[in-house]
Design a binder for these strands. Structure first.
Lengths: 211, 211
DNA sequence: GGAGACATACCAACCAGTATGTATGTTGAT
DNA sequence: ATCAACATACATACTGGTTGGTATGTCTCC
């Protein structure tokens, strides 16, 4: 009975913590970190300020936790994990990008990529944010470069390209396309900009005579 | 004597206004629009709050003025104007990008592109900002697509590409490269990411047999 | 004497953060 | 088995500081 009670209490505490993280993610996604209001987060969750400061020592700690937990897990499931699956690397890259682009709503488009939002806002003014964002971008870049490197070993990706630099450019273009679509608030812009990226990716395939 | 005195007074007023615009640009560039402090701007310029509200009706009006005047003129001189000059279009594009990348300091890199910063922060929460930013991006895209279209007419650019979509992707990649470099706070990242873009631009040239 | 170009003093709203209180367990000694 | 001591997980009320904005006064130039 003791472990059951303990489990229930712990789960309730974890629930409040999680609901705070989710509300904070949304608030930050909408207004940015600096303009995010703790009071607004508390109002939406029904949690009190005492509870918030029990779980997170400061607004900064809450922001870091949003990055480390909410944003990192979202990236893992929609980008990193699909890219580890077997298959033709360029096909996988194209599929992952296309799938991410297709299943996104107009409201999500206009809110933009949460990671890029935080990067643009916080990296120049807080090194804690910057380093956390940097490590996530590095993992993202590595997911792509690992994929391309495998393609080179298997002969499906042009062996002349530098996979590290190419992965960086692909990631930059990806974020750039989302930025343009965000400001235009247009799914069409995302798609026609994405077409440019997909066209670039096709050029990465090994030319037939080399295969 | 009368016109001279008038000129001096008018010039003083214009000077105040201009120094407010410049300080506001810098403050917004550093901290974003929402976190930009009017008091900080006043402190740096030595202008009083009464003077600020004499020239600008609100913080929003000041923000719009920074976009319409400061940012727009900077874009014109470093991007739009060079692209209207005669010469091989792809060469011009490459030169303009390379030149912009070379003469930028590390501190400017970590502050990022002022237009992109404002776009990411403000476009979802204020339509006045969004529309102004959108029109600037459209002019930027047009500068590029006009250049590419001229190249197609002159036979130096691959006639198969859609110049509008290509210009959009080039612009997106450009902003993406600057975003990655901003977060990495690294000139090297800007350069190696920019190499990816320049490599893409080379593919836009008309293939020899078609010339 | 009236308009342009400020200067000074002030205000209500909001912000992150804190001090204090409390209800509910958990634990260890008797 | 019971009770004191302690810890967790909050809840309430408050504080000092900052924010954008305004009301009013002043000085100069035409």
């Amino acid at each position: 009975m003791s472990p059951a009670l303990e489990a229930r209490q712990v789960k309730n505490a974890d629930d409040t913590r999680q609901s705070l993280l989710e509300a904070a993610f949304d608030e930050i996604h909408r207004f940015g970190y600096q303009a995010a209001s703790l009071n607004a987060i508390l109002e939406r969750t029904g949690v009190t300020k005492g509870a918030l400061y029990h779980h997170f020592g400061s607004k900064l700690a809450l922001g870091y936790a949003v990055l480390d937990q909410e944003i990192a897990t979202k990236l893992e499931s929609t980008w990193f994990e699909p890219m580890r699956r077997p298959g033709n690397p360029v096909d996988i890259l194209v599929d992952t990008i296309r799938k991410a682009g297709e299943c996104i709503g107009v409201d999500e488009i206009s809110l933009g990529c949460p990671l890029n939002n935080l990067a643009q806002e916080m990296s120049p003014i807080d090194d804690g944010f910057r380093q956390r964002i940097d490590s996530l971008y590095r993992r993202w870049q590595e997911s792509i470069s690992d994929l391309l490197a495998r393609g080179q070993r298997e002969g499906s990706v042009n062996s002349a390209i530098n996979v590290t630099d190419t992965a960086l450019f692909v990631l930059a273009s990806l974020e750039g396309c989302m930025s343009m679509a965000k400001n235009a608030q247009s799914h069409d812009v995302l798609m026609s900009c994405g077409e440019g990226l997909l066209h670039y990716l096709e050029n990465l395939r090994a030319s037939p005579e080399n295969q």
